Amino acid sequence: VFASCSADASIRIWDSRASPGKASMLTAAGAHDSDVNVISWNRREPFLVSGGDDGILKIWDLRLFRAGSSVAKFKQHSGPVTSVEWHPSEGSVLAAAGADDQVTQWDLAVERDQELEAEGQQQQEEEDDALSQLPPQLLFIHQGQQDIKELHWHPQCPGVMVSTAHSGFDVFRTISV
């Protein structure tokens, strides 16, 4: 069983054991508003992450894939998403790279604390509005490369990531994994 994404804005789940006419088992048509560039299958959880030309990351629960709607959606990248990958050992952590020259790290296990938000409302009003608008799941942004094409987690060194770009490649350790 494998997944594919396409310029027709769809994501498909295939079963290579089926006959060619029936191999496409599940389809999320219109998964993004434009081309779906990249997907990554989570090794630990029944999730896919997809990234498209629309700059959006979507999380798909394979148990709910027939419904055709994602379970989470993040719009942080201002250009097409060019690479996505789940962390090799942390099932809730993923990274994405985009044509906006950013690598972002996300942790889906992080949620907003409503009580702390209520207590810190006054402080939050004083903070920079742009920072307060960031989703709590966004843990890290790496910038400085131009035309990023690919990123990968190091399989043996926790938290180490490699990204390739027109301007070279970076090896760096993220803040929380």
Rank of each mutant, 00 (worst) to 15 (best):
Ile39Trp: 01
Asn42Ser: 12
Asn42Asp: 01
Arg43Tyr: 00
Glu45Thr: 04
Glu45Gln: 05
Glu45Asp: 04
Val49Gln: 07
Asp53Lys: 08
Asp54Tyr: 13
Asp54His: 07
Leu57Lys: 03
Ile59Asp: 12
Leu62His: 03
Arg63Met: 00
Arg63Glu: 09
Arg66His: 07
Ala72Tyr: 02
Lys73Trp: 05
Lys75Met: 13
Ser78Glu: 11
Val81Leu: 04
Val81His: 07
Ser83Cys: 13
Val84Gln: 07
Glu85Asp: 14
Glu90Cys: 08
Gly91Met: 00
Gly91Lys: 01
Ala96Leu: 06
Val103Pro: 11
Thr104Asp: 09
Gln105Val: 15
Asp107Ile: 05
Ala109Asn: 13
Val110Trp: 12
Glu115Ala: 03
Leu116His: 06
Ala118Ile: 00
Ala118Gln: 08
Gly120Glu: 10
Gln123Ile: 05
Glu125Trp: 03
Asp129Gln: 14
Ala130Met: 11
Leu131Gln: 04
Ser132Tyr: 06
Gln133Tyr: 02
Gln133Asn: 03
Gln133Gly: 01
Pro135Thr: 01
Phe140Ser: 10
Asp147Val: 08
Ile148Pro: 10
Lys149Gly: 14
Lys149Met: 14
His152Val: 15
Trp153Gln: 12
Gly159Lys: 01
Gly159Met: 00
Ser163Asn: 15
Ala165Lys: 11
Ala165Phe: 09
Ser167Tyr: 04
Gly168Ser: 06
Phe169Asn: 10
